[in-house]
Nucleic acid binder design. Structure first.
Lengths: 209, 209
DNA sequence: ACCTGAACACCGTTCAAGT
DNA sequence: ACCTGAACACCGTTCAAGT
């Protein structure tokens, strides 16, 4: 296409909202909202296109298929989770156990507020490797690894592979979140349970040991 | 319907497979198989009906809608999980830690073999209470509660609410399973991680404390 | 470059009708 | 009692065509 032709089109569509680069973010934003309100089953590409004011075939330019949209949602979910957990840790003060507890509680808060998104983040990719998604997951995981390393530096966590210990913490809070979302744990028991899990991780059984 | 009329129909359909009570189990069996092979997205009522040799509207007699079938799958999944964990604990010998470890490893084995089914078992029911499903979940949970009580009776687990401690164990193994199914934990690291989690639950940090 | 409109094959759900 | 067949409204995906 010539430059002149390009500008002719650009002017012609200047008042129409989703040309030239904002359809993709608009679809993602709408999808995140629908996911929170209606769950994964309520998320339809055609309906998204309608809500965003575009033909049902338009999303195809930005997402190869529905799964690609879901992958993108999962990826930004991991990024937001990382940010929220990091923020919680940073505003938790000096005490190591308090910082660890804050990370777990931030995780659980995210997980229960965006249960369908969390489901998506953990949905089995069935062998498909999605590099950017794996990086986003690794980024969130690294928050815990760094926390464990901090604890080792100050001597409150035993020496040893920090990845393995962070994995254990990760699994514990994710499990608590899963049980909460399945209705097995009542919401008000969540924070105490996280606190107990962290306490046990650091000190073992309270009265025995 | 008169008895005579009933027998006339019964004879007429004697060679047809899914009259009079085996359509429901046949659908469930086929669904469980498809779930394992194709995942949740590959599970379509119409396709199930086809595979089982029945019209697409026939399942309606046995399951009000697709969700009802999924609920039934989840329920039998919880029952099978309970049975498998119980069996593993019973064949694990006398040592308490070995029994606890066996329960966790059986859980993780089930979860990784039937990842899509596990997803279904933990799928948020979004407020809908399904009584029989909740009972099945409680049954599986009770295995862990009893294990904790055994440990308290023999003094290797601290006194205190056994439900709360069982919940912590439950969350930990479920979290490990979720991380495995998301591809965050490699399969061969699963058993050691479960062992470490159980060890920490009982003894705290190995070298500190 | 980006989007539209028509087309295709599938799906879940409903309902009158059949045996 | 249990199942069928037609109908409806929706969906994901594809592709030629438009601007």
């Amino acid at each position: 296409m010539s430059t002149a032709t390009f500008f002719r089109y650009a002017l012609a569509v200047a008042d129409r909202p989703y040309h030239h680069g904002n359809l993709r973010p608009a679809l993602l934003a709408q999808a995140e909202h629908t996911l929170r309100e209606q769950g994964l089953d309520g998320l339809a590409l055609r309906e998204l296109a309608r809500q965003v004011g575009v033909s049902h075939a338009a999303p195809r330019r930005h997402f190869a298929d529905r799964q690609a949209l879901l992958d993108a949602l999962a990826e930004s979910g991991w990024a937001r989770l990382e940010a929220e957990v990091r923020a919680a840790v940073e505003s938790a003060g000096e005490d190591y156990e308090a910082r660890l507890r804050a990370s777990g509680q931030a995780y659980v808060r995210f997980a229960t507020r965006d249960a369908a998104l969390l489901e998506l983040m953990f949905a089995s990719r069935q062998g498909r490797q999605v590099a950017t998604l794996q990086e986003a997951t690794a980024g969130a995981f690294s928050v815990l690894v760094e926390l464990v390393q901090d604890g080792q530096a100050s001597g409150v966590v035993e020496p040893g592979d920090p990845q393995r210990m962070a994995l254990l913490l990760f699994a514990t809070v994710q499990g608590i979140a899963a049980l909460a979302n399945a209705g097995i744990i009542a919401p008000k028991r969540l924070d105490p349970l996280v606190a107990e899990a962290i306490g046990r991780f650091l000190h073992g059984q309270p009265t025995l040991a």
